[in-house]
Design a protein around this nucleic acid. Structure first.
Lengths: 134, 134
DNA sequence: GAGTGTTTGACAATGGTTCTCAAAAGAGGT
DNA sequence: ACCTCTTTTGAGAACCATTGTCAAACACTC
């Protein structure tokens, strides 16, 4: 039941998954599942919305896309580098910059263990208005 | 239209708002609107769910409660001190510790202005397993 | 090509949150 | 108290992102 890939248990490279991957390659800000679904249609492919959701979730589990929530609680997605990092997101146009900060990582771990918490994870997103939108 | 209290434009102290406030005073971790609604019922009061939502949103706008989203995107709430701070939340039991870190504040602002972003805000939540749940 | 487990898609179902709007309740003046 | 004006409330409908269902289509191995 673990997700260890053992010969069996392989993910099949289907037309639909390729379409989602292609769509993800076409933008570098965060988009909702529905927007990604629309993009796929515009690229001439046809993939069910449920499949888009399934594929995005799988990719997120595999660490190939970032998923976060906008202020309305909607899930938004983008492909990403696999290293741990955070985002600086433009509130107006959605432009995104990946940032990383070892200091923050250290700080969160320190705070957490100081309070006896184990198995730490954290979310940190920075919102602002980018130069172009000012 | 500003929220400055000018005689008119006042928020009326109704039974319902008092009930929500009382419920909020009864716990110190994050709860969903529905859980808060249930709590109110248990305390013998009766307040419509829509009213609970409206009141919580108003309190959040006024900075008297914190609202954040759990991993499912649901809004969860708790009353809080008004100073800016973050949370260390137990993934299992919901226990919450308010933490603050000037270093993080400085870091986010630095990173943001470094990229030309203005009007910065940020979200940072730390999740883990608390000592009691280990 | 047949057999088998996986994936898909159309659609229904879920569930949190917001909207609607008529009825109820504060506030303030007389 | 009574009246008037405005705000607030509540029941239920409406919304809408997301997930579940399940038979049909598909990829893979033999």
């Amino acid at each position: 039941m673990t997700s260890t890939d053992q010969g069996r248990r392989a993910v099949r490279p289907t037309r639909q998954r390729r379409a989602v991957a292609a769509a993800l390659a076409g933008f570098d800000d965060f988009r909702s599942a529905q927007e990604i679904h629309d993009l796929i249609s515009q690229q001439g492919d046809s993939v069910g919305l449920a499949t888009v959701y399934r594929t995005l979730s799988a990719l997120a589990d595999a660490g190939e896309v970032d998923m976060l929530r906008n202020e309305d609680g909607e899930a938004i997605w983008r492909s990403c580098s696999d290293a741990h990092h955070h985002h600086l997101v433009c509130r107006t146009c959605g432009a995104t910059v990946e940032v990383e900060g070892p200091a923050v990582e250290r700080w969160t771990n320190a705070i957490a263990s100081e309070h006896g918490f184990a198995d730490i994870s954290h979310t940190l997103e920075i919102f602002g208005t980018c130069p172009a939108c000012r």
